[in-house]
Amino acid sequence: MTRLHKGALDKTPGATPVPMPRIQRETWVNWALLGLLLLAPMIANALGEVYYVNLATRIAIVTMAAVGLNLAIGYGGMISFGHAAFFGLGGYVAGISAFHAFDMTPVLSWPITMPGTDNLLVIWLVAMLSCAVLALVIGAISLRTSGVYFIMITLAFAQMIYYFAVSWPTYGGEDGLPIYLRNQFPGLDTNDPLTFFLICFAALVLALAITARLMQSRFGAALTMARLNETRLATAGIAPYPIRLVAFVISAVITGLAGALFADLNGFVGASMLSWHRSGEIMVIVILGGVGRLYGPLSGAMLFVLMETLLGGLTEYWLLFLGLILLFVVLFARGGVMGLLAGRARHE
């Protein structure tokens, strides 16, 4: 914490900024990873390897989902085991809207008539709003508790949404819902893999920028203190509960937008996007990358998707090896990939 305050003081005119070598190294790693993610699909596209462009898109989207969760877990100390609910809800908004746009039927006919649309801007807005509302409800109840209760309650709420999606027959139930035509962004051709990648990449950069900006603000300082020492925050005259709730909602919105993009990438949305394995997967990515580091999710997602692709190509049982690696990381290699690449975290 002392460093955080010193950083704030350094901004006063006249103070000579002393760069921390460790932090600088992390910044270099961050830029290198982001550059790699941007350049690799461009090269792949130039070589005509569409498969790798889509793989990079997948990494960008999964990273974004994890950036959302990282805000809750890493910065806010709220161990949500139910972020698949938001990921899936975002996906279902994209799927349902496309379904009605394709069918030319309204999404809602009462109390107002709401037609389906394939305009991504509208879909994203609706996805983010619905995730915000859902997160507000789940968060308002779950944040009354803490510790293990919080973990289990977020898990249980996500399961509730999952079972609802499975048993609700209108939108495919267990079979899921195909998106026949990828939703459109005004003025761009989203069917072009590289264009769609760039859209996802831009959304990811935006999510990273918002998280960074948020954590440098007074709100971010309050959120950090809510994690480190709740009593101290309350003593300073700031109630921890609303701070946490707002962070939880923002976190859900970011993950939900990633879900909407994911559905469009795959041309399909199903209950698997809501399952608790998905929550675990997003959490694994956050941890593999390094908890509470801005770019941790990026390195985690790269490692995860590459392992999924490479190991999954070698053996049907790749999850067994993922389990072993994860167990090893948790037991012996704390700090994740970013810990290895950029040294220990600020605070531990």
Binding site: F81, G147, I151, L322, L326, V330
Partner: peptide, 20 residues
Amino acid sequence: HLDQVLATFALILIFSEGTR
């Protein structure tokens, strides 16, 4: 708790895939 959740989640993967 976070470490406990992850390590036991890893155990689920190991047990499920091992059984399969």
